[in-house]
Amino acid sequence: MHGANSRRCWPKLHLALDADSGETIAHTLTDQDTGDASPVGPLLDQIDGPIRQFTVDGAP
């Protein structure tokens, strides 16, 4: 506002969900500059049980 050039910075919340129950089973928070593929490992590390299916969105 008033000529100031400020860029808002928003964190990104990455979730792993159980598709059958809708329950959140893992989560991680990154900054806006972190690529969407980077949190996959930390998300998978939080899941104790077997993973039957892995699906990601195609959002840029």
Score class of each variant (00 low, 15 high):
Leu43Ala: 01
Trp10Gly: 08
Leu44Gly: 08
His14Val: 08
Arg7Asp: 14
Pro60Ser: 09
Pro60Phe: 07
Pro11Cys: 04
Arg7His: 07
Pro39Lys: 00
Ile47Val: 15
Val40Met: 08
Gln53Met: 10
Glu23Gly: 01
Leu43Thr: 01
Gly41Lys: 13
Asp57Thr: 07
Glu23Gln: 05
Ala26His: 02
Gln53Ser: 07
Leu13Ala: 13
Asp33Gln: 10
Leu43Trp: 07
Ser6Gln: 13
Leu29His: 07
Ala26Leu: 08
Gly22Trp: 00
Arg7Ser: 13
Ala19Val: 13
Met1Asp: 08
Asp48Gly: 06
Leu13Arg: 13
Asp48Phe: 04
Pro50Phe: 05
Pro50Arg: 05
Asp45Glu: 15
Arg7Leu: 14
Asp48Lys: 08
Leu29Trp: 11
Asp48Val: 09
Ser38Leu: 12
Thr28Ser: 07
Asp31Tyr: 04
Thr30Glu: 02
Ala59Tyr: 13
Ser6Pro: 15
Val40Asn: 01
Thr28Val: 15
Arg8Trp: 14
Pro11His: 14
Asp45Gly: 02
Trp10Asp: 08
Glu23Ser: 06
Leu17Asn: 05
Gln53Trp: 09
Thr34Gln: 09
Gln46Ser: 07
Pro42Gln: 03
Ile47Arg: 01
Met1Thr: 11
Asp45Ile: 03
Leu44Asp: 02
Asp18Ile: 03
Gly58Lys: 10
Gly22Cys: 03
Thr30Tyr: 02
Cys9Gly: 11
Thr24Trp: 11
Lys12Trp: 12
Ile25His: 00
Pro42Lys: 05
Asp20Trp: 05
Leu29Gly: 00
Gly58His: 13
Cys9Val: 11
Pro39Asn: 04
Asp18His: 05
Gly41Phe: 03
Pro11Thr: 02
His14Glu: 12
Ala26Asn: 01
Ser38Tyr: 07
Gly58Ser: 10
Ala4Ser: 14
Asp36Asn: 14
Leu29Gln: 06
Ala4Glu: 14
Thr24Asp: 03
Gly3Val: 04
Pro39Ile: 02
Ile47Lys: 01
